[in-house]
Design a binder for these strands. Structure first.
Lengths: 186, 186
DNA sequence: CCCTGAAGTTAGTACTCAATCACTAACCAA
DNA sequence: TTGGTTAGTGATTGAGTACTAACTTCAGGG
């Protein structure tokens, strides 16, 4: 397998592992095992653990951007809103890891910034802005609606992280995500 | 100093430290240093690191409950909403650590649950429900409004964690928190 | 004046983890 | 065959970490 292909699979494995344990709670050995490669070899593909996390974070944001781009393609206003909400609902049910990775990303940024390392922070903020704009345009560039959409998304992320069962009453006020979630998740 | 008083200061120190590095990124030595006590002594005050984190998480939620209880005292409906939003704004400006600790709590729950440890998860979910109800009642038991309030809160937590500057346009759609934040944070 | 119990420390253990180094095996062009 | 590149491994190192055990210090009471 070429180095580039390996790097690709490392990023995917890293997203999985980091989503569980976060930056500090994930060992490079765990990532290597998931890739099926020796641990030292990771350091030939990436300069260090931080670089792996950064790549995983950027990919995570990129995935979300693409999800909403695809969902809202050719749609506007309320139709786009529903399409994007449905798409997110699918992510909740099928790839909850992605939501957790988002959360891990956010807290990792806070830690890095306080340690004087702004590289991750700048990348994540740039990615988030791209995500924000990706949602903003199909919603008719309505700031309030965009903010609402993102806010619901963040609430959902937190509820998923906390492990609230899909039928729990905290989901009640979330529409349409909650109802769809009730359907999709077992 | 009595053991009980020490435990109290350990919890406060732990909230600070865990809010930065999360569970895995925070050493018991860092907590001990902040308390001004030797590291092994922590294990006489608490059975282990996990217990310290649990205590810090519970205290964090308790603090938020108290914040909203105090803010909404004697108020209902829109008045209560504004009072609670203002109170949260104050927390954003003066105690951003508390918001970060919340985030750290959420991701720690996800990690613990997947590792088969449900103790933290149950405590956090119970605490969150108390928080939810604390907000729910003054808002006239309106589920949608409560969900909105919590969603905005979670979005704010994430933006703060990512380190978006107070004047950044992502804050624009947040009302009244954003405007107040612009005023309060330098 | 000694005894007890509680607060707190020093020294140490067993372990994990990121990163480095020296090496091998396969392939490929001249 | 030779010389070079690329994918990959095993052994190791040095720093850090949660937790334990044994010791110290000291206030208060009989």
């Amino acid at each position: 397998m070429s180095a580039e292909e390996r790097r690709e699979s490392v990023i995917r494995a890293a997203m999985s592992e980091f989503s569980r344990g976060g930056y500090y709670g994930t060992s490079t050995e765990a990532i290597a095992k998931r890739v099926g490669v020796s641990q030292p070899y990771l350091f030939r593909l990436f300069p260090g653990k931080k670089a792996i996390f950064l790549a995983a974070a950027e990919r995570c944001l990129e995935d979300s951007v693409r999800t909403f781009e695809k969902a809202s393609e050719g749609l506007h206003g309320e139709a786009a809103l529903h399409a994007m909400a449905d798409a997110y609902t699918k992510v909740i049910a099928e790839e909850p890891e992605r939501l957790l990775m988002q959360m891990q990303m956010y807290v990792a940024v806070a830690a890095a910034e306080q340690a004087g390392d702004h590289e991750l922070g700048e990348a994540v903020r740039a990615g988030w802005m791209r995500l924000w704009d990706t949602v903003h345009l199909p919603l008719g560039a309505d700031i309030d609606q965009t903010t609402d959409f993102m806010a619901y998304g963040m609430l959902i992320n937190c509820l998923v992280a906390m492990g609230f069962a899909p039928r729990h009453r905290v989901w009640e006020g979330l529409y349409p995500a909650a109802r769809s979630k009730g359907r999709l998740e077992h």
